[in-house]
Amino acid sequence: MDAAQPAMVNTPEQVPQTISNRKRQTVIYRAFSYLVLSLIGLTMVIPFVWMISTSFKDATEIYRPNFFPQNPTTDNYEEVITDTALPRWYLNSLIVAVMTTISVAFFDSLAGFVFAKYQFPGKRAIFLLFLSSLMIPTEMLIIPWFIMSVDPPIGATWVDTYWGIAFPGVITATGVFLMRQFMQSVPDELLDAARIDGVSEFGLFWRIVIPLSLPAIGALSIFNFLGNWNAFIWPLIVTSDLNMMTLPVGLQFFSSENGADWHLIMTGASLSVVPLLIIVIVFQRYIIEGITLTGLKG
């Protein structure tokens, strides 16, 4: 927003501008934007490239400051893929991420819809109750959760199960909050008109609010999906079988009492980014462009 200022300095206030003046400003403004975005973009890319390039260095070369490997090797990839359960960790992470993302997309939207569009006693209290779940560090909940997982209310044990890894995140307060914020912009008149047409309350949610909120739901799903690839303390505690661990937990095994095998960690981390990157590239247009405008017109 600060970037907008320089171009505005010589704008005569309240006087209608000529079209060409406005256009010239736009050109300057865009050029400026490209410059700044490229600079910031560079800082975004460098660490990332460093990570990838490290994954092609051998164990001794990673401690040298050269940016690109002098003797590029794919040994790290071979070692990580063949000597560890990485493919399996990959699969586990994927399953857990898909599970929670589907659940989050549905339940968070539903709860967000209620908070955005209904008035009922206890609304503020219940909303704060949901939010309050964010206010306690999950590091403190490890032990209560583990006790629960060893002797769960449903089933025999949650230890070493996908559900066990996933359950703390199947509904998220951040998501409920996000959906509430976005669904507030759905016009009440639209819902009331539909009610008059005999649409049920769930029908309002499913047939009107969801289509209008698809960009937000998309964003929420992506964030949730990506967030699952970073969580490690809880998945670590609730799994003891190497074949049930997730990728971030697995990466922990490359650090030992003797220090960390950074060439392997970088390789694992680089590998873990690939599917995420594909998702971002494929879906980013969809998330942001969305169909908000067409939805509102139709």
């Binding site: 303390i233 670590l236 922990q252 095994f253 650090s255």
Partner: peptide, 10 residues
């Protein structure tokens, strides 16, 4: 199958 750094935690 417990990472070194997380042994006490587990």
């Amino acid at each position: 199958e417990i990472p070194y750094a997380d042994f006490i935690t587990e």
